[in-house]
């Protein structure tokens, strides 16, 4: 009988724990949302450093600021004792941050590929342009020499009048 009472007690405790999970949350959702926000921000900065388009980055920054506002609202709600609302708002913020992180990673990869393509293009164009410019310079110089020579050869000695 005593064993049975212990089992019942444990079952009641477990049920209480399961149904009052939020009360033991202690702002954990808000902390997770904050961490996710910082990860997303770091990812956006990396995409920026890789040379992503400013317009795309601006959109992501706008979303980050929305996530930040939600985070502040969640903290406010938590301080006021509205834990359920705090958790929901923090989760919304976390979702936005995860979205931003994913989008910025894709942007970073795209930007790195563009940068590589640009570098390869520059490495090909610089010698080609140099070769073309040199050939052009050589042609112009040759033509100018030829012109000067012909002009010199056309010169006639002219006696001054009155001699």
């Amino acid at each position: 009988m005593t064993g049975g009472k212990v089992v019942i007690l444990i079952a009641i405790l477990m049920a209480t724990f399961m149904f009052s999970g939020g009360a033991y949350d202690d702002g954990e959702t808000i902390k997770q949302a904050e961490e996710e926000f910082l990860k997303a921000l770091k990812s956006v900065k990396e995409a920026e450093a890789a040379g992503s388009d400013a317009g795309d980055l601006s959109d992501l920054v706008g979303k980050l600021n929305r996530a930040l506002i939600l985070l502040d609202d969640a903290v406010e709600a938590y301080k006021s004792g509205r834990e359920g609302e705090a958790d929901r708002t923090a989760l919304q913020s976390k979702t936005i941050s995860i979205e931003v992180e994913s989008a910025s990673s894709a942007l970073k990869v795209q930007a790195l590929k563009s940068k590589l393509r640009l570098k390869v293009m520059v490495m090909i164009l610089v010698p080609l342009l140099s070769l073309f410019s040199s050939l052009l310079a050589e042609l112009v110089y040759s033509w100018w020499l030829e012109y000067s020579r012909k002009r010199f050869l056309k010169m006639r000695i002219k006696l001054a009048e009155g001699d």
Binding site: L125, S130, S133, A137
Partner: peptide, 26 residues
């Protein structure tokens, strides 16, 4: 008589162009 192709002159122009264009690209 056309002016003859001077390979040293051509090479020095080519080197100068490479330096100039590389600097601009950088």
């Amino acid at each position: 008589m056309r002016a003859s192709f001077n390979k040293w002159r051509f090479l020095s122009i080519l080197t100068s162009c490479i330096l100039i264009y590389s600097t601009i690209a950088y």
